[in-house]
Design a protein around this nucleic acid. Structure first.
Lengths: 165, 165
DNA sequence: GCGACATTGTAATGCTCTATAACGATCCCG
DNA sequence: CGGGATCGTTATAGAGCATTACAATGTCGC
């Protein structure tokens, strides 16, 4: 099998400095300020910045983080399901798994119930890393969300879930 | 260090897929359900689907829509400022302007106050198109948001604004 | 005015993420 | 058993963005 043909990145890791979208003073934003989609986008920027701060130096992105958390909480999950969770194609989920495996965070194990599928599992090292990562992300998320009261926070999550369907 | 030399990376503006993020039954989402960032992301996908429905057949994306609205509301805006509004580099703003110009929606005009800059303006045709587009997007945005009551919608916007800071 | 530096538009280049399509292996079901 | 679905995999293509470099133009300190 040629999964050993690992996809290599020419540039291993480049730290990224993140900047918020500028709210240019004096500019007319017209209809944008009425759109829920645009409000969501702006709020997402704020939370994304918190995420970036939490994962600085780890070469982690939101999809990668989501994948690691889901693998950790659902050992043996296969790549197709992972792709559905992330909303990406199987091929993309596989590239993710390769990437994790190359770092020794995740390993593939044969599944007894399905000869086609590989089960994804965190390694010891992956578990330690994900645990630390989750803690840092949660802390930053809460800190950023601290502009809201606890009740507001709960209400916001409720409304977002309702919206997401 | 000047702002122009600061590295920045645009926060993903929109899901790059039209597929909704599946909520796989029986799967453990662990810490994700506590994270505001994740809830925001899922809600954003839902609103993006509304946007996609509104602009179907127009070959429009959220950045393009934002750019057109901003150009329409701020005639003569230059490409650097447009880039800052969108959170992308000048070169990207330029590619956008090229794209609009090729379709005859936007034209560049020399600015009397700055010999380096080009002012961006909607053409007649661009104006008609943007007006129609704004109406459609607004309608779909409201329709998708209709899963919320009017009061909930107002509250959501308030919380999002507070979060976006 | 002059000179250093900043800013604008532009072009070239490369990377990352994602989709799509194809394929063999395996599973499921009638 | 046989046809179709599913899984992992590979290859390929394209969108979107950053980065870098450059010339033209603007700005500011002196």
């Amino acid at each position: 099998m040629s999964r050993s043909t690992m996809r290599s990145r020419a540039v291993p890791y480049r730290p990224r400095t993140l900047a918020p979208i500028e709210r240019v003073p004096g500019l007319d934003y017209d209809v944008l300020d009425e759109l829920l989609g645009y409000s969501l986008r702006r709020a997402q920027v704020a939370m994304f910045l918190a995420f970036a701060a939490a994962t600085r130096g780890l070469d982690i992105t939101p999809p990668r983080f989501t994948a690691l958390v889901v693998i950790g909480a659902n050992p043996g999950i296969n790549q197709s399901v992972l792709g559905r969770v992330l909303g990406i194609a199987r091929s993309g989920a596989m590239a993710l798994a390769d990437w994790f495996e190359a770092r020794g965070w995740v390993e593939r194990r044969r599944r007894s119930d399905d000869g086609r599928a590989w089960g994804l599992h965190l390694t010891r090292r992956g578990e330690r890393l994900v645990a630390a990562m989750k803690e840092r992300v949660r802390r930053h998320d809460r800190r950023r969300a601290a502009v809201l009261t606890a009740a507001e926070r709960r209400e916001l999550v409720r409304l977002l879930e309702k919206l997401a369907g």
